[in-house]
Design a binder for these strands. Structure first.
Length: 936
RNA sequence: GCCUCGGUGGUGGAAUUGGUAGACACGUUGGACUUAAAAUCCAAUGAGCAGUAAUGUUCGUGCGGGUUCAAGUCCCGCCCGAGGUACCA
């Protein structure tokens, strides 16, 4: 009987569905286990073999936990709002919801074929009005909240209104916009409603603010940083400018310290936590005011090194500095300099932030014509502007200490600015470390960084030239997008002031004629007529939509209670399911999604809507599966192709290069290449232009392609579709192979050739049990050796699943099968147990064997085997005997021996004697159960 | 630029606290079966040198140093690749 995987995989997938095997009951008596995958964006190209990697891992864990008696929540859904569907809509006019539905059904079919244990009754889609109704609801809560630094939590905005009515805002300690005026209770009560609303908006956790965006005039839209290349839009190549625009913002900065501190308790990789710490970017230092000469303007700078103020020989402001117009002193500038400074400001507005940060080699800048006084040294220092100073960090102005910072150093060199060396032992050179003694620094001379910092701060405070300050890199999050395919805001405007829509109903995304901005540059939603809106109030609705991360910041909560019409989730279910126990997803979400989810969770916690402070207890970051591209080399200007050996191999050193024609590398479809050898006939058919192609072949008369490992993408012809693999080898082989490929956390190339190893393993298992055609096993007891092999396999598989080391778990299953195969063991107990161990990895074949073993229930309802130590005890150990650290032979010794006894045995062994004749044994190191090393 | 993670045979990878480098697979080679091929099974397989052979021996975990009886693993300095960098998801 053949291993007919196509037949039996279909059979069991149908069985699981018909019998609702993976339905998760809200059974509060059982211990829960919540395992979650990052849900996918359903793109038009469907899944490639890289996508299921994490899902397979989580599925193994889910099945394993289920077999250990946990009530497992393992849901799946779609992050279905997003740009690609909108882009497609712009091109074709097709409504994004249609595309999205179509793509979702493709994904679903693909996922089903791999045999996942998802509870599909809990599926959610962020673009479903039943879902985004609650995303809007959370936005309403954010709008209706402010952060109180006294209670250190978010509170309802009504508390703030009450306080304003009683005492004005003098006692209030809450983050708010910088321009918020101070007022008494009387003044508050006399304010008009509009004025009151304007003030409240400055305190809300969701508020409107001017912020910098990448504006493309031609496209009439705002672009993401990665849609901008070299100052031009990726699409169309139109110029892109930095521009201020009124945007919805979320006051995530209120949570900065809690987001930072609570990281310590999370079971995430240190690297992701580091990335978040870095993003929050807490740094302690001082803010110092520098007085301008001939002006009453003072420029505030932030520095983490107040000990180095004596070394500041110039100042640099960002081109967008708020007081730039007051600071530019045209009297001191030549006509040419004037032009330079204004042109420079204009030019920098064209550069992206990333360009500005990464360009350190060719620094640019302009002199403002003004000077300031160094408050420590009293020296007069020039003020420059340069785009290496960022407006969003610190105060947008720095004091430059060229001897202590490489950017300041390079800037000074480029523009011939004065250098002053304040670190002893580092005269005339750059020193960015912390361990130098200060010199040329007045009252700080001879002091270390630590002492000098303390004294400098005292000086700053005593002389009232600044204060202690902690600075953060994190900025409030821009929460609006000028796009169509996203959640509309439940907001309308009256006198240009935003108001919440009071009704509990969802504000549906209205239909519009075209998915483009209006002629006036308003977002696409401005195209909707009043009657197109499901709800319409005031003068107009908000034209923005929410960003992609809105829906994904809380979806893990909705899975607990996906059909609830009254609440975003019921309290009972929330209390039971609680935090996500294990979250599986890519590290590329390290700061975006993962930080925003934490923020929303903390906010919902503050307002009493959820009982936990952190969403994801433990996280596993799967690596990416890369594509393996094949390359052909076309001789420039000809329709002739060179085999790979001839383009690289035919020269010895650089001087003896044998003439190699100049070639153009081209990606070729991997389906017409086998083991890197190109099928010439198929290649000629592949594209018309290659019909008459000629080839220069290698010694074997073959065309060998080059290989490149890169991201899977259609344009590289290196995409592998899981459906094809399932068709050819079966889902079980695919599951095994994806896990067998290497550690889950690591990126690795996909190479289809390797899958036969996993397929052979399953086929070998099948054949072992069907040697006589039909299924055949023996009811014979296991001997000592069988038990030892089996129990060490149980031990290894269990430990490996617990440490998410699936590749090694599979290899230990292979070793166990090899043992059974070589010894032709078909003992029922052993097979039964092995089958259970295999079942989370290859569930279809395991179900089939489970049934054939005479069981009526699905294998997921069985208990996962546990090992017994007594079968594993050893009495002897094969000691590696090494000489000067090199292993020379092995000696089997009883584990009962004392160190002295081991020593005697080793030294009396004739192999030791023959190796040590005429040599002195200096030392002998014996580590029991490990190694013996003889030092000569 | 900055932050983070990687680099081990021809390939994917394994290696507990520093203790036998290369488990398990793929590929390759040889053999069995077959009229033949495919499939399957068995064996060998890091590189070099010596030897008919058993075996011995040297070199080997990106590069250069260091610590140690012992380093893929720890320390210092480099090189290369990947991910993130605030409107891709």
């Amino acid at each position: 009987m053949e291993y007919n995987f196509n037949f039996l995989e279909k059979k069991w997938q149908d069985y699981w569905q018909e019998n609702n095997v993976f339905k998760t009951e809200d059974n509060y008596n059982k211990e829960k286990f919540y395992i979650l995958d990052m849900f996918p964006y359903p793109s038009g190209s469907g899944l490639h073999v890289g996508h299921p990697l994490g899902y397979i891992a989580s599925d193994i864990i889910a099945r394993y936990k289920k077999m250990q008696g946990f009530n497992v929540l393992h849901p799946m859904g779609y992050d279905s709002f997003g740009l690609p569907a909108e882009q497609y809509a712009i091109q074709t006019g097709q409504h994004p919801s249609l595309t999205t539905e179509k793509n979702k059904s493709v994904y679903r079919k693909q996922l089903d074929k791999i045999g996942f244990s998802f509870d599909w009754e809990r599926e959610v889609s962020t673009s479903d009005p039943e879902y985004y109704k609650w995303t809007q609801w959370i936005f309403k809560q954010l709008f209706n909240s402010y952060y109180c630094n006294i209670d250190n939590k978010a509170l309802p905005i009504s508390n703030l209104t009450e306080e304003f009515e009683k005492n004005g805002n003098f006692e209030v300690q809450s983050p708010c916009d910088e321009d918020t005026p101070k007022f008494t209770s009387k003044e508050w009560n006399d304010f008009t409603e509009d004025k009151k609303q304007t003030i409240l908006l400055k305190y809300r956790l969701a508020y409107l603010s001017e912020t910098m965006v990448n504006w493309c005039e031609e496209l009439g839209t705002v672009l993401a940083n990665d849609e901008v290349k070299d100052g031009l839009s990726e699409r169309g190549g139109h110029p892109v400018k930095r521009k201020m625009m009124l945007q919805w913002m979320l006051r995530i900065t209120s949570y900065k310290d809690r987001l930072l501190n609570d990281l310590n308790d999370l079971d995430w990789t240190e690297s992701i936590k580091d990335m978040q710490r870095n993003w929050i970017g807490k740094s302690e230092g001082a803010s110092i005011f520098f007085q301008l000469i001939d002006s009453d303007v003072k420029i505030e700078v932030f520095t983490t090194r107040p000990d180095t103020v004596f070394g500041a020989t110039f100042m640099v402001l960002c081109p967008e500095h708020k007081e730039i117009n007051k600071i530019i002193n045209v009297k001191n500038l030549s006509i040419e300099q004037k032009k330079q400074v204004f042109d420079y400001i204009e030019d920098s507005s064209l550069k992206s932030e990333r360009d500005r940060m990464s360009n350190n080699k060719d620094m640019t800048g302009a002199f403002t014509g003004s000077y300031a006084i160094n408050p420590f040294s009293g020296e007069t220092i020039p003020i420059w502007i340069s785009d290496y100073v960022l407006s969003d960090y610190g105060t947008g102005a720095i004091m430059s200490v060229p001897c202590g910072d490489h950017r300041d150093w390079q800037f000074a060199k480029k523009f011939n600015l004065k250098l002053k060396f304040i670190f002893k032992d580092y005269q005339y050179q750059l020193y960015e470390g912390d361990n130098a003694i200060l010199v040329n620094s007045g009252f700080l001379d001879g002091k270390t960084k630590k002492e000098a910092t303390r004294e400098a701060i005292n000086f700053i405070i005593e002389n009232e030239i600044g204060e202690l300050k902690t600075n953060y890199k994190i900025r409030d999050a821009v929460f609006s997008r000028q796009r169509y395919w996203g959640e509309p805001f439940p907001i309308y405007y009256k006198n240009n002031i935003p108001y919440l829509i009071e009704s509990d109903e969802v504000v549906e995304l209205p239909s519009i004629d075209k998915y483009l901005p209006t002629a006036e540059g308003e977002p696409p939603l401005a195209r909707a007529k009043k009657s197109d809106w499901s709800q319409f109030y005031g003068e107009r609705m908000d034209y923005n939509t929410m960003p992609g991360w809105a829906g994904s910041s809380w979806y893990f909560i909705r899975y607990m209670d996906p059909k609830n019409k009254k609440e975003f989730v019921s309290k009972g279910k929330l209390d039971y399911w609680g935090q996500v126990d294990v979250y599986v997803g890519g590290a590329e979400h390290a700061v975006g999604h993962l930080l925003y989810s934490r923020f929303w969770t903390k906010f919902l916690f503050d307002r009493g809507f959820v009982p936990f402070k952190e969403p994801f207890k433990k996280m596993i970051n799967q690596g990416m599966i890369l594509g393996r591209s094949n390359i052909v080399y076309r001789i420039k200007g000809e329709n002739k192709f060179l085999t790979q050996e001839k383009i690289a191999g035919d020269f010895v050193g650089d001087s003896l290069r044998i003439e190699v024609p100049e070639v153009v590398s081209m990606n070729v479809d991997t389906s017409i290449v086998k083991n890197d050898i190109l099928d010439l006939t198929l290649f000629k058919k592949w594209r018309k232009e290659f019909k008459d192609a000629e080839f220069i072949l290698n010694e074997n008369n073959e065309y060998k392609c080059g290989v490149e490992i890169e991201k899977m993408s259609k344009s590289k012809f290196n995409v592998e579709n899981p459906d094809d693999i399932v068709e050819e080898f079966g889902a079980d082989s695919l599951r095994l192979y994806e896990m067998f490929l290497g550690p889950i956390t690591q990126s690795k190339p996909w190479n289809k050739n390797g899958i036969s190893g996993c397929f052979n393993f399953l086929q070998k298992y099948w054949k072992l049990l069907h040697q006589k055609g039909d299924f055949f096993i023996e009811d014979v007891k296991m001997n000592k050796q069988d038990l030892k092999v089996l129990h060490s396999t149980i031990k290894k598989v269990t430990e490996d699943i617990n440490s998410y080391s699936f590749n090694t778990a599979i290899s230990s299953l292979m070793i166990c099968l090899k043992y059974m195969h070589v010894n032709n063991i078909v003992k029922k107990d052993m097979i039964q147990c092995f089958n259970l161990l295999l079942s989370p990895f290859a569930p279809h074949v395991a179900e089939e064997i489970h049934q054939k073993l005479g069981n009526n229930n699905s294998v997921v309802f069985e208990n996962f085997p546990s090992f017994e130590e007594k079968h594993l005890t050893e009495t002897t150990y094969d000691y590696p005997i090494s000489f000067n650290g090199k292993v020379r032979f092995k000696l089997n010794l009883s584990l009962d021996l004392s160190i002295d006894q081991i020593k005697e045995k080793v030294l009396s062994d004739e192999r030791t004697i023959s190796k040590t004749t005429d040599l002195e044994i200096k030392k002998i190191i014996i580590i029991p159960r490990k190694i013996v090393n003889i030092v000569l």
